[in-house]
Amino acid sequence: MHTYTDHEDHAVEVEDLVVTYGKVTALTGLSLRIASGTVIGVLGPNGAGKTTLVRVLATLLRPDRGTARVLGHDVVRDPLPVRLAIGLAGQFAAVDQELTGRENLEMVGRLYRLPRAEARRRAGEVLDRFDLTEAADRRVGTYSGGMKRRLDLAASLTGRPPVLLLDEPTTGLDPRSRQELWTIVDELRASGSTVLLTTQYLEEADRLAQRIVVIDDGAVIADGTAAELKAGVGTDILRVRLNEPAVLTTAATILEDLAADGTAVAPDPVTGELAIRVSRPDASAEALRRLDGSGLRVATIQLTQPSLDDVFLSLTGHTTSVPAKESR
């Protein structure tokens, strides 16, 4: 677990948050702190409680128990300064179809209490940055799905809030739009914004966030940098490919005792590969020596760090792709 020092400057502080919807408990005592100016990835499967966390921080949902503070302001007791400090982009494009892109952004700017001219200027800037200038004076109804989502994100930045809450910002985006969004998050990070983004994609959290918080069933189950989380799994993975896949089973027997406690060595008939969780630092050399000695010809041998999927599996006992409750 990540440790905190008292003098660390936190943009978001969440303590023991409990949220229930009727009989369903969406958050079961979630605690979390986000240092100012960092990008944090909240990672978890559908139904883990990611959206609920975002809704509490955005003052849209009152928690049943616990506290949440943004820039020191309690989201329940004093929501207005929280709203002034945050920008929210949800899973849906919350923009007016009948208005143009520019009108949507100018309205949001005005509602961040900017003077009219300033709202107009910023809308222009943000449209430019999101590559929407050409479409700016067209009705949003004529935009593609990706453009609408970009506009939605643009809207959340118009008031230049120091804290951004991005709920699954790339879900449903095509690869190009996703790449663009990644670039924007990088820029936000460079400009000192604090960003909380939720994602179901491990790769994305790894790519964008300085810190990853893994949540499952409404609570934080792991917290750290991608490297720390991977190290926490404690084992590397040795992948062995032979020239003759037919003898893969023989190889499995020879390498069996290299496997970390309690893990099996199962040949994968599809990839023609053995994947072995190993904890010995010399596992690679030892495997090569043994296979060579037995006259088995090795095509490739590779020692890899676990993927974040492996991390999730080792933490929860299931992968992220388990079909779960509808996210809310």
Binding site: R83, L84, L88, G90, V108, Y112
Partner: peptide
């Protein structure tokens, strides 16, 4: 249902 209300409710108004 379009999510616009969520946006409005998250603004400092």
């Amino acid at each position: 249902s379009s999510g616009v209300v969520d946006r409005l409710r998250s603004l400092p108004i």
